[in-house]
Every structure is written in C-alpha cells, then in structure tokens.
C-alpha cells in the first residue's frame, strides 16, 4: 500500500511538473519542454542557477522586508539617531565567500557542458547537412546525398545530425528551442551545430538574429521521423525526376509558365545546387508557405501576385515578370503537386 502511495506521489508530482511545463508554451516550440540533446543540456543549466539564485533572492527579500518592518521610523522615535556602524568584517567576509562557492557550483557544470556541446568528434560518421541562411529562408544541402531542400529539414530521430551553417548575406541565427540552443549563421565562417532529437514530430525553428524586415517571418521546421521513414524519404528525394510530366493538365500548363517566366533561374527543382531562391523539389510537402503561412493554393497565388505583402523585404519581389491571377493559379497548381515522398510533416506530426 505504502509503495503504491509512494509511486502515486512521484507520478502526481511528475504530472504537476508536466502540467506546469505544458502551460509554459507550445509543445515543440518551447525551450521549457526539451526534446533534444542540446535543449536538455541547456534546460539543466536553466534550472540549476534558477534554483540557486532564487534562494539568494529569497534571503535578500527576507532581510529587506524585516529591515523595513523593524526599522521604519516610529512615533515617538522621530529624532532617534541610530548607531553609525562602519561595517562588520565577519559579515562582509561571509557574503563574499558564500557567493563565490555558489558560483563555483554553477560554473563547473557550465564549463563541462560547454565543451560537451562543442564536441564534434563523430561528425565524420554522422549525417551532415550544409545549412545556408538567406534573407529570409533556409537552404539545406544533405552532404554526399545529392539532396537539396529548403525550409523543412528532415532528420532521423535519435541520431546526431551535424548542421554546417553559413550565411549568404547577413548574420542569421538558427534556433530550434525544443531541440537545441541557437548558433549564429555567419557569412565568413562555417559554424557547426549538432542536433539530436529524442521524439518524432515537427519542431519550430526560428531565426534569432535580426536580419531585416522579415526577420520574424524566417521560420522553418525540423521534421523528425523514424530511421526507416528517413531512409525512405532520402530514397524518394533521390529518385525524384524533375523532368517527369505532371499528372493534371493544369499542372502541365503551370509548368510551362514556370519555365517561361524563368522561375528555374533561381528556384531549382531536383538536386541542382542553384539556390538563389528556395529549392522547390518537395514544395507540395511543405508544412508552411513562406515560413509562416498556411500552405494552400490561395496563399500561393497571393504570394505570386505580391510577395512583398507576405514577406516585406524579400528578394523575390520584382525579380520576375508580373503574373496575372490565372497564371499564378496555374503555377500554384504545378508547385503543389511537387511531392516526391509520402513522408511529410503531416505524417510526422501524427
């Protein structure tokens, strides 16, 4: 009976913590519910100093409150002149030494974790993805796999994936709060961050360094799938034939327009390394349009008619001939059927 009660207590405590954490933001976005190695390490070092410093804050507040209650000017004592104390060596030593000790408790794991998260020893045996930050989208090149994609980063669950990141323009910062802390994406040198997700799902990624008007719209997703699904996805992407004829007539017309307007000059379909604009190979599978908008034909048309409205300051505005609504709709038809794989964010989300 006692054992059952004990278990119950632990469970209910865990439940409480879970409720508290889930109240702290959206799942797969919040850093307070870590689901990856980096995020977990950071979380540990969020909790430890919070606890220690809260105790310090509590002590300060107790002394502060007591001092105010006890020593506030009282009736009949208005002219009382307190003893002019110069100091107290013992006290001063105490409140110098104790903080030093507390800080050592925080500093030691900080250094250990800092080195741990920078350890890239097994990079050569792992999946490496070359990440390019652009105003305002992300390009992913799976090294040695001939897969190029944008905006949705597919990775296998449980495995370390190395992101070798560089920027094509200004500084960006890649942040997937639930999986890992952030790392800047600089124009001059490659920065390497590894992520290792514990659970399948679709995770929100953000740009965390001011990069222009649409900084807040530079979202992307990390799609974490099982190893088998990932292999399937890789095979599907590699086997994708960009030359294949679309099934519907409308899409065929859309494709013609796509070629006529030289969209292909910036947007590659297939494994071509052209990446002036996002690679569109699996555009139809994308979880979001332009990072934040719902993926729908309507929205694509809106985008094609006036990208500036959805993403101020983007590089596509005025870089292509004006389209009318019908043309935009046909192109949307073509883009939406670009879906090389069954493995999609939707499937991973479930």
């Amino acid at each position: 009976m006692k054992g059952w009660m004990g278990k119950f207590k632990v469970l209910s405590l865990l439940g409480l913590v879970a409720v508290f954490l889930s109240a702290c933001g959206k799942e797969n976005l919040t850093a307070l519910d870590p689901k990856g190695y980096g995020a977990e390490k950071s979380f540990d070092l969020i909790i430890l100093p919070t606890v220690i410093m809260s105790v310090v804050l509590l002590i300060v507040m107790v002394i502060f409150t007591l001092a105010l209650i006890k020593f506030r000017k009282k009736k009949g004592r208005e002219d009382f002149i307190p003893k002019q104390v110069e100091g107290n060596q013992t006290l001063e030593t105490v409140w110098t030494i104790i903080p030093i000790l507390l800080l050592i408790v925080i500093a030691v794991p900080t250094v250990i974790y800092t080195f741990d998260l920078a350890d890239e020893a097994d990079a050569s045996n792992s999946l490496n993805v070359e990440v390019t930050g652009n105003q305002y989208w992300w390009h992913f090149n799976y090294e040695g796999q001939e897969i190029q994609t944008s905006q949705d980063l597919y990775i296998p669950v449980g495995e370390k994936v190395y992101l070798n990141m560089i920027s094509s323009d200004v500084i960006h910062s890649l942040w997937v709060p639930s999986l890992s802390g952030k790392l800047d994406v600089n124009p001059e040198n490659e920065n390497t961050l590894y992520i290792q997700a514990y659970e399948e799902g679709v995770y929100w990624g953000k740009c965390a360094e001011l990069c222009g008007p649409s900084h807040s719209l530079m979202d992307f997703k990390v799609v974490v799938v099982s190893k088998e699904e990932f292999d399937q996805w890789v095979a599907d992407m590699q086997n994708f034939d960009p030359e294949a004829e679309p099934e519907s007539d409308l899409a065929v017309q859309g494709r013609e327009l796509f070629e006529e307007n030289n969209c292909i000059g910036c947007h590659a379909i297939g494994s071509s390394p052209v990446a002036i604009g996002p690679n569109l190979t699996n555009f139809g599978d994308r979880s979001k349009l332009a990072g934040t908008e719902e993926m729908s034909k309507e929205n694509i048309v809106k985008w094609l008619l006036d990208p500036e409205k959805m993403k101020p300051g983007n590089k596509m505005t005025n870089a292509y001939p004006k389209l009318n609504e019908e043309e935009a709709s046909l192109i949307a038809e073509y883009l939406l059927q670009l879906s090389p794989s069954e493995i999609t964010p939707e499937a991973a989300g479930n």
């Binding site: 850093a31 950071s42 800080l103 360094e209």
Partner: peptide, 20 residues
C-alpha cells in the same frame, strides 16, 4: 532579479537558449 538573471545568462550553455 536582474542580477539573478544576469548569472543565468552568464551560464553559456543556458544562454544558447536565452540569447536574442
């Protein structure tokens, strides 16, 4: 409180989350 969060942001690994 500002000093308390100051120590927290000084903790580099946690700062990977706090930063920006």
């Amino acid at each position: 409180i500002g000093g308390m969060t100051g120590v927290m942001v000084a903790t580099s690994v946690a700062d990977y989350q706090y930063h920006d």
